[in-house]
Design a protein around this nucleic acid. Structure first.
Length: 428
RNA sequence: GGAGAGAUGCCAGAGCGGUCGAAUGGGCGUCCCUGGAAAGGACGUAAAUCCGAAAGGGUUUCGGGAGUUCGAAUCUCCCUCUCUCCGCCA
């Protein structure tokens, strides 16, 4: 959500923002609603002031006649006021509805474009593996090693279902343990959040009202969040933090639920796009300062890059184009890992910052040095998603005999350095 | 799932339908006192929003919503949350 005053003063900017994000939004409609809102507000407030003044007189006035006269007069004011208030409420509903649709303004550095195809590479790292044999895809590798079972997955879950089994499970646990250690050294507080959350948190973090169809819902009207970002952003909702507490850095770990409603034909095979997965997520709240926000953004993106580099998986980082940005995002980087069999990079996570877009909706404020209340700025970035990360991990490190050679940092956590062979057991 | 109790300011805690933005105590801040401190004293101590250059003023807010009333923290209804007891449960 943006400040209505900002919107009024920067109509063109907001219009351009919507255009760049390929979002349909009519600023004039909002301004018209806001004009109405203001007029009605002033008018009802005047009537209420009148009412309050009369009310005070009624209590102080001596004679019953004067009293009766005042009460009679106020009956008329009351009727007027009620009519106006009804009108005001209707306008407010429309106004709020429109306010929730105002896109945040993307950064100057965000490239133009319609979709992820227009994202711009800003960095690439690592050497793509050259195989002396015909490489297999992760489905084949993992199925042969009994790390995953897609057939039974779809029997039990349906489309996009999977079971992780055996070393597939052990590998996930190894990655999780490593990730927890890795990000703990970066000053993050680990959090296991509730992932069944109340609707308000989805509005707050900007996933509603637009993303309804991609969310699972309970019979109580709660939702299964698609990321730990949602409950963690809700964590400090309606709170006033001290400036000295900032930045807050949280490392959330949670299952993630996504219906993938708009992606029926996409990635129908394998572990790339599933309805249910696990993810470590970095969430940061910082002071209301663009430079500080940018610095944190680069940092949390870099954290994930470093993590991937430590695993030795080739990747590149792209700046997302306007059309690939969410409603509240100012700028976003996607990190994409090399998938040898497909011969292309696949996204494993993104880092974005929001300025005060989310904190305004969630009412997360802090007292600055002068004691002034300000909305905090928020950012988040994927730390590591499983099982999606396994796709690249397994394909890049596959060997001619069908085994997988694990990258060094994981060996300690996994207990072996090769999956699928009678490998050497490493001392833990 | 059943039974009950409750939700007031930074905290604790009062509050006959009008004089309640809200007693009192604590905390916090500024000042006085002091060589310095403690004790004591004085004053101050919410947020949102609108008008205004400012000073200042209006409106709203006592969990949320609806209602009764000229007027609601106070009365009525609904909802949410918290707590206690019983049951069930990983």
């Amino acid at each position: 959500m943006l400040d209505i005053r900002f919107i009024r003063e920067n109509k063109d900017l907001v219009t351009a923002a919507a255009k760049k994000k390929r979002i349909k939004f009519d600023v004039e409609e909002l301004i018209t609603a806001d004009d109405k809102r203001r007029t009605l507000m002033t008018s009802t407030e005047k009537k209420r002031a009148e009412q309050n003044a009369a009310s005070e007189k009624i209590t102080k006035v001596a004679t019953p006649e004067e009293r009766a006269a005042l009460i009679a007069a106020m009956k008329i004011v009351k009727a007027d006021l009620e009519k106006e208030e009804t009108e005001f409420k209707d306008v407010m509903v429309k106004w709020q509805n429109l306010m929730l649709q105002v896109p945040n303004v993307p950064d100057m550095s965000v490239p133009e474009g319609d979709s992820d195809a227009d994202n711009k590479e800003v960095k690439s790292w690592g050497e793509k593996p050259k195989f002396t044999f015909e490489p297999k895809d992760h489905v084949e590798i993992m199925t042969k090693l009994n790390m995953v079972d897609f057939e039974r997955g779809s029997k039990v879950h349906g489309f996009r279902g999977y079971f992780l089994t055996g070393d597939g499970v052990r590998l996930c646990f190894a990655i999780w343990s490593y990730a927890l250690d890795f990000f703990s050294t970066k000053g993050f507080v680990p959090v296991l959040p509730p992932i069944v959350v109340r609707k308000i948190n989805l509005f707050g973090s900007g996933y509603l009202p637009q993303g309804e169809e991609d969310l699972y819902k309970t019979q109580d009207g709660d939702y299964l969040a698609g990321t730990a970002e949602v409950p963690i952003m809700g964590f400090h909702a309606d709170e006033v933090l001290a400036a000295t507490e900032l930045p807050k850095r949280y490392l959330g770990f949670s299952p993630c639920y996504r219906r993938e409603a708009g992606a029926h034909g996409k990635d129908i095979r394998g572990l790339i796009r599933v309805n249910e997965f696990y993810k470590f997520e970095q969430v940061v709240l910082c002071e209301a300062n663009h430079e500080v926000s940018v610095k944190n953004h680069e940092e949390i993106n870099r954290n994930t890059e470093e993590f991937i580099e430590s695993l030795g998986i080739p990747y590149h980082t792209v700046t997302n184009c306007g059309g690939d940005l969410g409603l509240g995002q100012v700028k976003k980087y996607d990190i994409e890992l090399w998938v040898p069999k497909e011969g292309k990079y696949r996204e494993i996570g993104s880092a974005s910052y929001f300025h005060d877009f989310q904190c305004r909706r969630l009412n997360i404020r802090y007292k600055d040095q002068e004691g002034k209340l300000k909305y905090a700025y928020s950012l988040n970035s994927t730390a590591i998603p499983t099982p999606r990360i396994l796709v690249s991990l397994v394909e890049n490190f596959q060997q001619a005999d069908g085994t997988i050679k694990l990258p060094a940092p994981l060996v300690k956590y996994f207990g072996k350095d090769v999956i699928g062979a009678a490998a050497v057991v490493v001392n833990k």
